[in-house]
């Protein structure tokens, strides 16, 4: 049952991507999209999805959309402004270093979302991850603190809250 549901989740994803990429909803597109969805779902379902109940939960998808807009419109803009200020400032106020940032989510997907959110904002880059100790190593353009918990407050707390709602 779990396997079938995992395949269904991937089939839905494949169908949506196929239709978006084709850019039309003619009978030919719908038919071939269904065929592609069944094929890809059956082949990759269990590999991609471990817990189908989460993948098929529309509430989580809503959270993901909400987070996308929040991230792109607020977090990205804030980080860009900060880095632009540092670049144009003649004193070049940077204090780079690598800090340890713990995370408290359980799935790989949730951790990946946090890590990619950190890397995608300018000023911070995840350079390594320790899954056993559950921490990320982040290169920070302006190291305000080297204490892991405080650094987490600055860098990843907001990302983690959203990531938990979407993937964990």
């Amino acid at each position: 049952m779990k396997r079938v549901l995992a395949s269904v989740a991937i089939a839905i994803l494949t169908f949506i991507i196929y239709i978006i990429f084709s850019g039309s909803v003619s009978p030919y597109d719908l038919l071939t999209a269904c065929a592609a969805a069944v094929l890809v779902g059956a082949l990759t379902g269990t590999f991609v999805v471990a817990e189908p109940a989460k993948a098929l939960n529309p509430l989580r998808a809503c959270h993901a959309v909400k987070y996308f807009f929040r991230y792109m419109l607020i977090d990205e803009v804030r980080a860009h402004t900060d880095v632009i200020k540092r670049i144009v400032s003649p004193r070049m106020p940077i204090n780079p270093g690598i800090v340890k940032v713990p995370y408290y989510v359980n799935t790989d997907y949730a951790m990946t979302l946090i890590a990619n959110s950190i890397t995608n904002t300018p000023g911070t880059v995840v350079v390594d991850v320790d899954k056993e100790k559950k921490c990320l190593f982040v290169h920070w353009i302006d190291v305000k603190t080297v204490k892991p918990e405080e650094a987490r407050e600055f860098i990843s707390r907001v990302f983690e809250e959203h990531s938990k709602k979407i993937f964990d």
């Binding site: 991937i10 994803l13 494949t14 991507i17 196929y18 990429f21 084709s22 071939t32 999209a33 592609a36 969805a37 094929l39 890809v40 779902g41 082949l43 990759t44 590999f47 991609v48 790989d108 997907y109 951790m111 990946t112 890590a115 990619n116 995840v126 390594d128 991850v129 899954k131």
Partner: peptide, 26 residues
């Protein structure tokens, strides 16, 4: 590789194959 690379590859796998099939069938 790292779990980050693996997770991203996992999610991208069905998406890219969907696009590949769409390119071939169109």
């Amino acid at each position: 590789m790292s779990p980050i690379a693996k997770s991203v590859t996992k999610i991208t796998l069905p998406i890219v194959i969907a696009v590949a099939v769409a390119i071939a069938l169109h």
